[in-house]
């Protein structure tokens, strides 16, 4: 039994079916990357997993327990264990860095202040923002903001981290500082689902890669398979196009 079991997941915006039967099983501690053409539904999959665009059909199991996306309690429970970082505008613009990281554990989880602040300080040190606790998001570079966003996502000690193109809004020279932080996290054994267009990075950190096209996962396998010996024609086309660039 996997850490996260996705079966026959369907999702739609209005009348448009975006996800058409997604199946994916992720084991504890795995780093699974989602690749695929623009509009194939990668973001939608992550958003529906965390309940921002609730699935229309299908099941998601976390540790063997099915999540009911229409139930507040179930959703809260899910979000205690799962965190997401978006491409942009992650940080609360009205709060400084330290507040961004501590607000949820303090105000929502009502955890002990001393412990929360200690954890936050450690996390911010780890992502290399130790010297900017008082800065506001718009005083930071995009790369720094994303690293704070990752620290904030980790502040509640999630078991699963979803990352949706967290580097694609960044200047090229800022990409690596964020990738370094993610690379570092993969050693912690936290389960990760990563959407990324940085193919060499995907190759390096993923235990498995899932190829998505037109709303479903068409091929899953270790990076060597997907990039060097894809079984599906669509994967071959996509990988061929990407690697040629």
């Amino acid at each position: 039994m996997g850490h996260l079991e996705i079966r026959n997941l369907h999702c739609s915006y209005g009348a448009d079916d975006i996800l058409k039967s997604v199946d994916l099983s992720v084991d504890r501690g795995e780093v699974v990357s989602l690749i695929g053409p623009s509009g194939s539904g990668k973001s939608t999959l992550l958003r529906s997993l965390i309940g921002l665009t609730p699935p229309r059909m299908g099941t998601v199991e976390l540790d063997g327990e099915e999540i009911n996306y229409r139930n507040r309690q179930s959703l809260r429970h899910l979000r205690d264990k799962m965190a997401i970082v978006f491409q942009q505008y992650n940080l609360f613009q009205n709060m400084n860095v330290f507040r961004n990281v501590t607000v949820a554990p303090l105000k929502i989880k009502k955890r002990d202040k001393g412990a929360v602040e200690k954890t936050a300080t450690e996390l911010l040190d780890r992502v290399g923002i130790g010297d900017k606790h008082q800065a506001y998001p718009d005083e930071l570079s995009g790369g720094q903001q994303q690293r704070v966003a990752i620290a904030r996502a980790l502040a509640l000690a999630p078991e699963i981290l979803l990352l949706d193109e967290v580097t694609s809004a960044l200047d090229p020279e800022r990409v690596n500082e964020v990738l370094d932080v993610i690379r570092d996290l993969t050693r912690d054994g936290i389960t990760m689902l990563i959407v990324s267009h940085e193919m060499s990075f995907v190759k390096e950190v993923s235990t498995r890669v899932a190829m998505m096209d037109a709303g479903s996962v068409v091929e899953v396998g270790p990076p060597e398979q997907i990039f060097d010996a894809p079984k599906e024609q669509r994967t071959r086309d996509f990988v061929g196009k990407i690697l040629r660039h």
Partner: peptide
Amino acid sequence: ESAEVLNF
């Protein structure tokens, strides 16, 4: 959305 997924 950031707030929502932090259980606000």
